[in-house]
Simulated assay, not measured.
Amino acid sequence: MTKKFYAVKQWLDNTENGESINTNDLIAYVDGSKLNNIEGYGSGVVILDSKGSLVYKKSFKGDQKKYLDSKQIAGETNATLHAVGWAIANKYNSILIKYDYIGIENWATGSWKANKKVAIDYKNKINELKEKIKIEFSKVKAHSNNEFNDMADMLAKSALEDDKHTENSNGSHSLRGIENEDLQALIKIINEDKKLRVESFEDSDDNSENKIIYKFYDKDNNCATVTYFKKICYV
């Protein structure tokens, strides 16, 4: 069995063991991601038509404060709603959602009670959309070399990776792509200028090995804090 044939067979299967064949107009792979040093969550969507051809893909970031504590799950629900909305806007009658987080199906079907805001809003919106399109669900094992699930995963991550500058809801800013050597050179210049002074220390939380805290003080001892993340952590 060739790799291409196996990939086509995967999206055709409506169940994990391949016992039934998909009969929906569209198959949508959805995923979410969270990057620990950027406030917000990423969503990835990959949509195939009934013949297995790629017809749409989307990578986007969300940062609604009411969903931030749900991390990548908010990215998963947003991806699902986006996929269904796209199908409706393009006048399709049915869609199969391929997900790797079980809440996507269980909240929609009522198997799980929706308690958090992200789940409540997702369930309510899915109930509205069900009036306009047939929606079915099928679980895909995460990180199992499924071509289209992996593609959705990468799109969700890239929504955060490509965001070089983010203004967070608490007023702070996140910048990506700055090397520690460049930051150290800037700090040296600032300290030599003597208009500001900079102090640094390791963070004391559970991720202390990943962070360095820099405090910038002016002549009146007012302080601005910069957190440098030494590595990127995805979820």
Rank of each mutant, 00 (worst) to 15 (best):
M1C: 02
K3R: 02
K3W: 09
K4T: 03
F5V: 14
F5H: 08
Y6L: 13
A7Q: 15
A7H: 13
V8A: 08
K9P: 00
N17F: 05
N22V: 15
T23P: 02
N24Q: 10
N24G: 00
L26H: 09
I27N: 03
A28M: 04
Y29V: 11
V30M: 08
K34D: 05
L35S: 05
G42V: 12
G42L: 10
I47G: 07
D49R: 07
D49P: 04
S50K: 14
K51Q: 00
V55C: 09
K58V: 10
K58F: 14
S59V: 08
S59A: 12
D63T: 06
Y67H: 11
Y67S: 13
Q72K: 03
I73K: 03
A74M: 02
N78A: 10
N78I: 07
N78F: 15
L81W: 08
H82K: 01
V84E: 05
G85E: 06
I95Y: 14
I95A: 12
D100A: 06
I102V: 13
E105S: 15
N106C: 01
W107G: 03
S111E: 08
K116F: 02
K117S: 07
I120Q: 01
K123I: 08
E128V: 09
E128A: 06
L129P: 15
K130S: 03
E131T: 08
E131F: 04
K132H: 07
K132E: 04
K134S: 15
I135L: 05
E136M: 11
K141R: 08
A142C: 13
N146Q: 04
N149I: 13
D150I: 12
M154N: 13
L155M: 11
L155R: 05
K157M: 12
S158F: 03
L160R: 00
L160T: 07
E161S: 03
K164L: 11
G171T: 11
L175M: 07
L175P: 00
D182S: 12
A185C: 02
L186A: 05
I187L: 04
K188N: 10
N191Q: 09
E192F: 11
D193G: 04
L196K: 02
D206R: 14
D206Q: 13
N207P: 00
S208C: 05
N210V: 04
I213W: 02
Y217H: 06
D218P: 06
T227V: 15
I232N: 00
C233V: 08
V235N: 12
